[in-house]
Design a protein around this nucleic acid. Sequence first.
RNA 1: GCGCCCGUAGCUCAGAGGAUAGAGUGUUGGCCUCCGAAGCCAAAGGUCGUGGGUUCGACUCCCGCCGGGCGCGCCA
Length: 546
Amino acid sequence: MLERPKQAEHGDYACNVALQLAKALKRPPREIAAQLVAALPASPHLEKAEAAGAGFINFFLKRSFKQQVVHRILDAGTRYGTGMRGQGKKAQVEFVSANPTGPLHVGHGRGAAYGASLANVLAASGFDVTREFYVNDFGRQMDILALSTWLRYLELNGVTVPFPANGYQGEYVRSMAAAIRAEHGARFRHDAGVFMPALDETDEELRLDAMIETAKHTLGGDYDTIHRFALDVQLSDCRDDLAEFGVTFDAWCSERSLYETGRVERALRRLEERGHVYDQDGAKWFRSSRYGDEKDRVVRRENGLYTYFASDIAYHLDKFERGFDIAIDVWGADHHGYIARVKGALAALGLDPQRLTIALVQFAVLYRGGERVSMSTRAGEFVTLRELRKEVGNDAARFFYVLRKSDQHLDFDLDLAKSQSTDNPVYYVQYAHARVCSVLEQWGGDASALARADVTDLVSEREAALLARLLEYPDAVENAARDFAPHLVAFYLRELAAEFHGYYNATRLLVEEERVKLARLALAIAVRQVLRNGLALLGVSAPDRM
RNA sequence: GCGCCCGUAGCUCAGAGGAUAGAGUGUUGGCCUCCGAAGCCAAAGGUCGUGGGUUCGACUCCCGCCGGGCGCGCCA
């Protein structure tokens, strides 16, 4: 038995709810109250409503309110959300910010799928979205790649230098070396002896740094040639990979360019002018602890080089100077400790940190045959996004990636994603779409006839449920935009597909009676349209036949 | 130790403070002379980690504890 409210009578709550609803729906409270009165006697749940108090009435009213607008259904299929949430605000989604030091792996894939779907969902909700890739082409990792490439190149030219364990070991490095050799011959060949002092260093990381220095000194201007070549190859490979994955960008921002255009120095100067930077131990520190960070952070090292954080400050300042109302960064979850300092920097620069949202994406772990597939970029044994796409297909990959809340660990079951069977949710949704296409083909009528379809001919409980489900689509998209959670769209699509499959199995669409047939076909077409729209948001195809 | 994330059916996971907590998968049993069986229907499966608190009402919000993941660089 449900208990009656203790401290107040129902009436008080009902009034309160009516007022809140009136506010939310922007309707006169008197009208809402009238609806309450009208709705309640008809409710089979009246007894429970009384027992449960006003909250139930609230729920019931929302529901009945929705049913009143069910006639919007048939055109709901042609809409992408309501477009109300974004209201034309400019939003930037930055994702797959990566060191272009090798092929994208499955972890990047999740960020790409998530970021792309999120951007689509935001666009569908009325935001003016810019999709941006931040290229980390400045730091040590790129130097390590350039060094690794040169070492492989030397190998090809008969010069053997012990390859560092912490260098990039992948096969693609050898390919780049071969390409350089094909183009430049032995121009970059130097004697192994140049590495002698560097190799004496016992600490692995220091030795690597020393080897990089050796490469820079020995090669001079040629170092930049190799560096740039490796960057170009990796970046275009990355771009092609993502494009094949249905992930494209409106802008590519180079970290290096932030230095070359003086934006890093300008951002730091601005911080300094506002009194947020101090010198200590020969380095420059940003006083991020003032803004809730655990400690202050170095922006310029003792050796005069800027940290990654420094360019990131400049980058985030730049985002808002470019006029974005909101910015969303998609990061790997291992970077969460970095959030406080970036938001702190924005606050210190006089910008509202609330305008920046960091969406953390947890790791994706691949399973094959029930066994965890290991990966590590440096060792070159990773499973690349390309391999994954080839194995399970783009559709399954895109769908599986967003089938989990982004901050949830993702166990990616390769066998399941590959299976063209009943347990694969991608096929389940696509199958519903193909089914509608198939029915329409068999019908063979003129689509314009469907304009005569009348929703009131849809009378069964299943049809009502299907209509209600269709009506939820704009909400699903808006909610996905609100929570930065495209998985809500994936879940919605699965539910819609299930609703349709059930309807289809229970009800014959191509019946004799013309009115009923048209109404049912119109409903099926609405379902197809919503499936198409939703799948498009997720970057998944909607095949006519499978 | 501190910070962030997570703990919901055997498994993988949804769940804007509101109805009897839902899907998928797995298990069991049904449904193709009929628009595609890649489908459908039904059964079974739960102390929502745990103990408090706030509330008319808590899976949801707050605090403590237990368990798991990640992060705590003058790396990027």
